[in-house]
Amino acid sequence: MTTTIPTQTLPEIIYPDSDGKPMSDNTKQFQLIVKIQGGIDALFKDNENVFVAGDLLWYPVKGDNKTRQAPDTMVVFGRPKGDRGSYQQWVEDNIAPQVVFEIISPGNRMTAMFKLFKFYNNYGVEECYFYDLKDNELIGWVRSDGELNYIESMEGWVSPRLEIRFETASGDLEIYRPDGLKFVSYVELSRQMEQAQQQMEQERQEKELAQQKADRLSEKLRQMGINPEEV
């Protein structure tokens, strides 16, 4: 009699969409994260193969749901736009995020920042930027010779991948697009749109008044027996 030994089925590995940690510790941190993520997303809005996410868990290793990080903003070239619960690298043609941003709040400890940097260095990030809100200090690293190397001066630095420029001389982090336009918050963008609409309306009214003035002058000329088109 043959005895059949049951095959053991390994339990399915779950990759949670949340690590239970807050996206930000304060309003200023949140606003800056949204500005950076939104600004980069808008910059590449016409490129379907650039994926930009904020506070999305990245799992670099299949079968390991403990090794993970959620960059405040990450940019992946070579992957399509779209919604994801998490970024599972083996599902994404094994493409690691090339650019990551972290906004450091007063609650962040140096040891935690070191662990973040070590993670990004180990798993192939090409450009890594940490911004300290309290001290208005931007620190960056760019990969060469297989390692993330410290950027000596970040003032005026242009990202090789994103082609955006960083400035901190104003007392806050300012980011400029390749066309020179500055990253702005949604509120600032709304104000700009309102101003543009007001300017358009003012120009329309001025054009309308000018046309009315021209029409009155033409009518006076006709009353005097003069053809305004021949004047």
Rank of each mutant, 00 (worst) to 15 (best):
N49R: 07
F30H: 12
P22E: 10
E188D: 15
G82N: 10
S185L: 15
E174A: 15
D215H: 05
R109V: 09
M193E: 09
P6E: 03
Q197H: 02
I104G: 06
E48Q: 12
E201L: 09
L56G: 09
M224K: 04
N149I: 02
K21C: 05
R204W: 01
D72P: 07
Y123T: 11
E206K: 10
T9Y: 03
M154S: 05
T168K: 05
S170E: 15
D132F: 10
D135H: 08
A96G: 00
G85I: 12
I33W: 04
S24C: 04
R177P: 09
Y150T: 04
V61Q: 10
E219C: 07
A96M: 06
T73I: 03
A196Y: 01
V125M: 03
A70T: 14
F119I: 09
Y150D: 00
K35T: 15
A42R: 12
F30E: 05
E219S: 02
F183Q: 08
D19L: 12
A112C: 11
I104M: 08
L116M: 13
P97E: 07
G63H: 10
Y87P: 00
R216T: 08
E155P: 05
E167M: 13
K81S: 03
C128A: 09
T67A: 09
G156Y: 07
G39P: 10
I139M: 05
D64M: 06
G156C: 09
F101V: 06
R216H: 12
A112Q: 12
N122E: 14
M200W: 00
A53V: 03
L133M: 04
D215E: 15
G82M: 10
G140Y: 07
E230L: 09
R161E: 02
Q211S: 04
L209H: 11
Q199S: 02
N47R: 10
K66I: 11
F119A: 11
Q202M: 02
Q37C: 14
Q31I: 11
F30T: 11
K207G: 13
K182N: 14
T73E: 00
I175Q: 07
V75D: 04
V76Y: 06
G39R: 10
K21W: 04
L133Q: 11
A53S: 13
T168N: 08
L43T: 11
P228H: 15
F117E: 00
E137L: 12
S170T: 13
F77H: 15
R84K: 05
N49G: 11
F130S: 03
T3D: 08
Q192T: 06
V76M: 06
N26W: 02
D132W: 06
P80L: 08
G124M: 03
S18K: 15
A214Q: 09
R109D: 12
G63R: 08
D145H: 05
F119E: 08
G124E: 01
S218L: 02
P97S: 05
G107I: 05
T2D: 13
M113W: 02
I151M: 11
E163Q: 13
D135L: 05
G107K: 07
G54Q: 07
F117R: 10
Q8M: 06
L43N: 03
S18I: 14
Q205D: 04
